[in-house]
Design a protein around this nucleic acid. Structure first.
Length: 294
DNA sequence: ACAGGTCAAGGATAC
DNA sequence: GTATCCTTGACCTGT
């Protein structure tokens, strides 16, 4: 069982953070300057991931999520940086892959809220496919095994939306399909509904325990564990769950700075210590460290 | 050095 | 239909 965190590393200070550029700023720049800026940021972000993974190795942390902004403006029409063919950048990605493989580090990604495969707007679905393909490419280059998203929209009802999601999934490349995993959310789709979709299209289900507390099912969480585990069987990876502590109480959708001991040991118990646990809290690595000392 | 405002993208909700 | 919030982090501007 591995535990880990997402994106930022607090211990490294400024060196554990990432760079970005806004569309607005990019529009004010000439193409050559913008190209250089995008390339520099992409290189900086890749080296930051490498730096963080080295730090993770020193501290025994073997689970880590890369940020979505590895390539600034990734799928935006303004992007003039041919990152897929940049030898220097690919070399850094390769170092990440090599180091992670050597040290048994599990990597993942999490495309953000704008990725809505279930949208009723074809343009949104088209953009989502582009974004998922971009994430899948980065996953391949650094050796990440999965990318997790939410089911998304509920327009026209959940049944119709789940059906749109399944249709949207068919638009993805085999590479993206083989990495996509689905997570229950804190407002709309419960673990039960997510499992139905996962079983239909044969993709793994990522159980978010805090989301389940906010958006529960009639049945207790433990009754879903076997089904969740079964969705992972066809991939050669351990099941994964997300864990947060509510800012004020169990059903507070806002995340606390740290994961509480109570929540952590509950997650271990519920998943029978057979799942990797991704911490989702503000203090990132600092929270994970608290549970690494024993 | 620090505080506050701003920023690509979708969706839900309130008016 | 339009405004606003959700929510996070980086960056910029003003003090």
């Amino acid at each position: 069982m591995k535990i880990g965190y997402a994106c930022i590393n607090e211990s490294l200070g400024k060196l554990g953070r990432f760079k970005s550029v806004t569309v607005k700023k990019s529009k004010e720049m000439n193409k050559i300057d913008l190209h250089d800026k995008l390339r520099n940021i992409a290189l900086y972000n890749a080296n930051t991931v490498l730096r963080i993974i080295k730090w993770n190795i020193e501290h025994g942390i073997k689970l880590y999520r890369l940020p979505s902004g590895m390539i600034p403006l990734d799928t935006h029409e303004l992007n003039c940086f041919d990152w897929r063919n940049d030898t220097e950048l690919l070399r850094v990605y390769d170092s990440i892959k090599l180091l992670s493989t050597q040290h048994d580090i599990r990597l993942s990604m999490h495309p953000d809220q704008f990725c809505v495969l279930s949208s009723d707007n074809p343009t949104v679905v088209f953009n989502t496919v582009q974004t998922l393909e971009y994430h899948a490419d980065i996953c391949d280059l650094v050796g990440a095994d999965n990318m997790v998203i939410h089911l998304g929209s509920t327009k026209g009802g959940k049944i119709a939306s789940m059906s749109r999601f399944i249709d949207g999934f068919q638009l993805l490349s085999d590479s993206a399909k083989s990495k996509l995993i689905l997570e229950n959310d804190d407002k709309s789709y419960t673990i039960s509904e997510i499992l139905d979709v996962c079983e239909t299209i044969n993709i793994p289900c990522c159980l978010d325990i805090h989301h389940h507390n906010c958006n529960p099912t009639d049945e207790p969480i433990k009754s879903f564990i076997d089904r969740v585990e079964d969705t992972w069987k066809h991939r050669s990876t351990r099941p994964k769950c997300h864990l947060s502590t509510g800012a004020t109480d169990k059903t507070d959708r806002k995340h606390h700075d740290y994961i509480s001991e109570e929540d952590y040991y509950y997650a271990v118990e519920v998943t029978k210590a057979r799942f990797d646990i991704m911490f989702e809290c503000k203090k990132k690595d600092l929270s994970v460290l608290k549970f690494m000392e024993n």
